[in-house]
Design a protein around this nucleic acid. Sequence first.
DNA 1: AAGTTTTGTGAACAAATGTGCAAGTCTGCA
DNA 2: TGCAGACTTGCACATTTGTTCACAAAACTT
Lengths: 304, 304
Amino acid sequence: MTFKDHDDLVTIVAWMYYMDGLTQEKIAQEIGISRTKVSRLLSEAHEKGIVQFRITKSLPEYYLLERELKHRFNLKIAVVAPQNGDSLGQFAAESLFKFINEQKPRRVGLGWSTTVSLMAPYLSKGIVQTCQRCSVHDLTGSFIGQRNPYSISWRVADAIDARYVPLPVPVLVENPTLKEESTISNALKEAEKVDIAFVGMGCMGTKSTLLKTGLVSKEMMNDLEMKGCVGEVLMRFFDKEGRPMKSPLDDRIVSIDWPAIKNIPVFVVIAAGEEKVAPLRAALFGGWVSGLITDVQTAKRLLE
Amino acid sequence: MTFKDHDDLVTIVAWMYYMDGLTQEKIAQEIGISRTKVSRLLSEAHEKGIVQFRITKSLPEYYLLERELKHRFNLKIAVVAPQNGDSLGQFAAESLFKFINEQKPRRVGLGWSTTVSLMAPYLSKGIVQTCQRCSVHDLTGSFIGQRNPYSISWRVADAIDARYVPLPVPVLVENPTLKEESTISNALKEAEKVDIAFVGMGCMGTKSTLLKTGLVSKEMMNDLEMKGCVGEVLMRFFDKEGRPMKSPLDDRIVSIDWPAIKNIPVFVVIAAGEEKVAPLRAALFGGWVSGLITDVQTAKRLLE
DNA sequence: AAGTTTTGTGAACAAATGTGCAAGTCTGCA
DNA sequence: TGCAGACTTGCACATTTGTTCACAAAACTT
């Protein structure tokens, strides 16, 4: 075989490599040039667009949304459940375990939230390399006792074989001085130092868990909404630009406060649903969210 | 980033690899799987047709013709000049040098032919690793003297630094006993043992070089044509199925004979032009041609 | 023509990719 | 529940591919 023209050579080599599936070595022998040259000719074919790659399947929507969320809101973690029916809990759990395995955080914090609780079924031992130097912290007080069903901190701690640091006190106390209790204040101080937090997000209005559980009265809810409050994390309220808002409850709430929240390196919100769109928008705008776990529908609304 | 489905994973990896140009290593890190797995996912993408290669330029015509000629006529060498105007001599010379470099033949034979002579401008020293153990043989007698302009054997010998074994005698002798001369008969015997031969091909009728040079009379040419002769190589005639034909000239011709021709391992014919189509067809059909150097137009006619 | 830059080349090396294998995981079935 | 078999996984190694470098041929300059 004799060659007449450089461009022809590029074409022929490209056919032999991509269509016939020969190795560069074989092509080199076949046409009597060095393998190095074959390699270079293939690069050239690539650069000049003589060979093109075509991927028949488009990227899954959730993946595109994840990329866009990360980019738009400067997130470190973005997970979008492909089906609205899928449990966010599973993806939250996976993200948490992945983070633990890769980043080896010293302290992990968990909020009290029905959404965060969805992780529960996906917690099991052995998923992470046990890191006993690690501790798991409640970021808010709990409802009833230390191991109440709403708090899954202890279950996470159990799964990853870490120390569990509870906040063994109601999330809303009547007497603010209760927070002075050394057990409580120490636990809170520890909680403020977590490397990563997984929290839910509360909305205002009738769908609010706070309202439904009776922790916040209808009047107070209305009042906050009037003042421009659009949501809460860890019982801390914020306006539509994600700015912290004061509330009459602040002193009675047992949870880390705004400065602490903003200080957490990786603050991951788990939330989905139309009612969460407004608070999520605000929170993302506020800039104190560095991770989001949601579903396709919510993600789309956020990116509109 | 969390993954939901195996097929999605294949797609995503394919995009990252082929579109974003990431290495498998980087992809592996990015999505938290082993590099091995990325490699396997890419294979899968390939097998399942999720990724496809597209080459925008088609293979050059001459290359396709070369492949087809090789395949159809079981040739070891097939060269098709891309433009009809291109000199076959250049490609003949390239092929010869390539063969010499790669196969290190002991003996090279050259026919006497205007077409073979086209090599002349492309001969120069230093193109091959000098092989002094090699010799270059005339396969037919020559016209005038040892170094006549039609014979390029000595020039090839010079170029590759090889011994030149001439047939210093006219190609057509009046007295057949001249062939008994030891110089001649020895040279012929040597010539019969060449590893590769480059020869031209003669046609019948008015375009025949034999006729034009007056070596063969018009009457004899007509007579041979009547008997079914379609062409000649080295002054040996053959019919339309490439079978050797006797002619009254046979005894007076100084060239290797049919058994010797058929015995040459690589017998390369250099010929192009409409008048050569019939003889080439016959010769290829006859099966004693193992190499062909021609042009696009002739190649197409041969493959019709 | 002699020198100078540019271009192209292959050998040697470095990086990336593919594969056999052993160990682990999952699944169906008793 | 326990077990066999199919499948998956990652490691270590083999192969393949890309890049650097030094050199030589070609083009250009003086």
